[in-house]
Design a binder for these strands. Structure first.
Lengths: 190, 190
DNA sequence: CTCCCAACCGAACGATCGTTAGTATGAGCC
DNA sequence: GGCTCATACTAACGATCGTTCGGTTGGGAG
């Protein structure tokens, strides 16, 4: 692993723990075991490290969606999307934490780009629910906006309670079952 | 409104927008229209302002739960709890934003107390779902932990998309309907 | 052996941070 | 008029911030 990657990883760890503004370049240098001035051989500035983290995060989350076969039923794609999202969060908890919490400290231009990327992700999720309704898998009066919002709430909040090593597939399936079948009725009638 | 309350409100606004570490005492003083040294006639330190915000937040959220009659069916209490939570978020968006995002910057002792308060809130929600299951309103195989987690995810994520003035009761009911009846089956069979 | 080059050091920069101290103003009360 | 008290000002404090820069180091390539 290159020194630059070391740096980015340690930065993500500290940003997740103390926040972007709560993490000083000096503290980061200490964590690496180097004088703070030395960091500038690898980065242009502190913003670089935040941006790098966000870029990796966006890639990871979109990548998880990309791995889902287009041909599957919409409900199955929803289940796999939830699995994928939770897996990314658990596998790269610090990355996910920064991704959800610290994006607003990107400088203006980069923040705009980030928000656009996130919108695109949300739209991909919303599309799954619309698809499920239109193809008769989900109830015909389903509001895809509310459904997607509930999905994304569960997904985006996961960094607060998920721990590395958790069985994210089982957790995702539990969430999925609740979303699809509800808390009142009995599970999937045959 | 007292000067101190002005200060707390403006601090919450800035903390919500820029984060605790991203908001300087100087910027806060500017927003009030006063020299930064003058603030110390009203506060002991910057931490005070954060703590004050958290205290108000905890009070608001617990207060919303307190207003729910104990005698109602569990499912109805769940619906009202969701209504209450979203109403607090929409009515005091900046307060809620700081409450969810900035609590980790409290100093150690206060943070511990905050986390305990939040745990208590989560436990109150979990209890509602357990009650619903035990009294036969909700399915007998319901995992109250997963159910409460889904509820709290929707509730805690709301600050990111809710806007002041929204019809939070309608939104809460839409969430509630989805949670209880699911996305697949048709709504409440008669 | 020499040269290169990435990595790092050590010191310093100006800016900004949260906080303190001493003083001034002005309204309300006796 | 004298007194208190909340409010605010000005100036400065030491600490820390992100960043810059000239010099040093050490291992690999030629």
């Amino acid at each position: 692993m290159s020194r630059r990657e070391d740096l980015a990883r340690e930065a993500a760890r500290l940003f997740a723990e103390k926040g972007y503004h709560g993490t000083s370049i000096g503290a980061l240098a200490d964590a690496i075991g180097v004088q703070k001035g030395s960091l500038y051989a690898h980065i242009e500035g502190k913003q670089d490290l935040l941006y790098e983290t966000m870029r990796q995060g966006a890639e990871a989350f979109h990548g998880a969606l990309d791995g889902i076969p287009e041909a599957l039923p919409a409900t199955e794609k929803i289940r796999l999307a939830l699995r994928g999202h939770l897996r990314v969060v658990a596998d790269q908890l610090e990355l996910a934490t920064v991704f959800v919490q610290e994006w607003r400290y990107l400088d203006d231009e980069r923040r705009d780009r980030f928000v656009a990327e996130r919108r695109r992700y949300e739209e991909r999720i919303r599309t799954l629910f619309r698809e499920g309704r239109e193809q008769g898998e989900l109830r015909s009066d389903l509001d895809e906006n509310v459904a997607a919002l509930l999905f994304l709430s569960a997904a985006n909040w996961a960094f607060t309670w998920l721990r590395a090593g958790a069985d994210t597939d089982a957790l995702a399936d539990a969430f999925y079952a609740l979303l699809v079948d509800g808390m009142r009725g009995y599970s999937t009638p045959a």
